[in-house]
């Protein structure tokens, strides 16, 4: 298998073929989630470690459940309750964990490139669960998987990604993944939140959201990452909501059957109005379920199968 024993660090570095392999594997594994007994022996005897230097609800739980549903054992380390607090370096933490016999590390870290660094330290596979402002590849994969639940294909699909593009690893993984599969991607936010030369990645950039959203099949709203921002990127959450938040007026520019997505956690009433988040067009909770299936597929493809 193409992914066996490999790292998953970014969608930029993942081929379209491998992306499709993950998606089709996830499609067949998703069925396990609806069984009364959610357990298959596929990864029995494998030990998976989640190493999180940043808070997480969805991603961490999703990876751990994906591992458990396939009978892998999991250990989880949080920076906030580990020897990281005593000043241990990432390199030392990682090497110590590896010495205990784990088979794969899933890491989230606030610094871009940390998973690349980790992969240079360890011989075992590394999965990036979000590194700084760089990428969150399994999020990109589960988003594409979710779009395919509602749309016949990705090629030619119009996807508008709204919000804090500059600080978003979700935006980058979606941009790399979606453009690789042939979608027409538009990104939009106040220009202070658009990174330089973003159009060179094959997307169109707009500083007025209604232009980006015009005729969109998918409207993807990003979380406003208040923790990553400096002071002068926008004046207030109130003004942000007023001009850039997704409300009914803005949504009216999209296609009638456009779906609404968000990676969570949401700032309700800031980047997305509550009634839109909870509307029938919102597939935000489907993304969460699909996240488990996609992560099962990734773990299976990297760790599973015969030796």
């Amino acid at each position: 298998m193409a992914l066996k024993g490999k790292d998953l660090l970014s969608l930029q570095e993942l081929s379209q073929e491998d992306m499709e392999l993950v998606l089709s594997t996830a499609r067949s594994l998703k069925e396990i989630l609806s069984r009364p007994i959610k357990k298959v022996p596929t990864l029995r005897g494998k030990v998976i470690c989640t190493l999180f230097y940043e808070p997480s609800t969805r991603t961490r739980t999703s990876f751990e459940l994906a591992a458990k549903y396939m009978s892998a054992d999991t250990v989880s380390i949080s920076a906030s309750t580990s020897s990281v607090q005593k000043g241990e370096t990432l390199a030392d933490t990682a090497r110590n964990l590896a010495m205990m016999g784990i088979d794969l590390v899933i890491m989230r870290h606030s610094v871009s490139g940390s998973c690349h660094f980790l992969s240079q330290i360890l011989d075992i596979p590394v999965i990036n669960a979000g590194d700084g402002m760089h990428e969150h590849p399994t999020q990109g994969l589960l988003d594409i998987f979710t779009i395919l639940d509602y749309k016949p294909g990705i090629k030619g699909l119009k996807v508008a990604i709204l919000g804090d593009i500059a600080h978003s690893r979700v935006a980058r993984s979606n941009i790399f993944g979606l453009t690789k599969m042939g979608a027409e991607v538009a990104v939009s936010g106040p220009s202070t939140l658009l990174p330089p030369e973003i159009e060179a990645l094959g997307v169109k950039a707009f500083c007025r959201p209604e232009e980006a959203i015009e005729g969109a099949d998918v409207v993807y709203v990003l979380r406003l990452q208040l923790e990553r921002q400096s002071n002068s990127l926008f004046p207030s959450k109130r003004e942000y909501q007023d001009f850039f938040g997704l409300d009914h007026d803005l949504l009216s520019h999209a296609k009638e059957d456009a779906i609404i997505m968000h990676p969570g956690p949401m700032n309700r009433g800031v980047e997305i109005a509550t009634d839109i988040a909870d509307s029938p067009r919102s597939v935000i909770l489907d993304q969460v379920t699909n996240g488990v299936a996609v992560r099962m597929a990734v773990l299976y493809l990297i760790l599973g199968g015969r030796e």
Binding site: H134, E135, P195, P196, E197, A200, L201, S230
Partner: peptide
């Protein structure tokens, strides 16, 4: 340049490093 890590441009955008 505050908190910057590398040149501001396409590569910093791709890598998610502050430019």
């Amino acid at each position: 340049s505050q908190n910057g890590q590398m040149n501001y441009g396409l590569i910093s955008t791709m890598l998610g490093l502050k430019g």
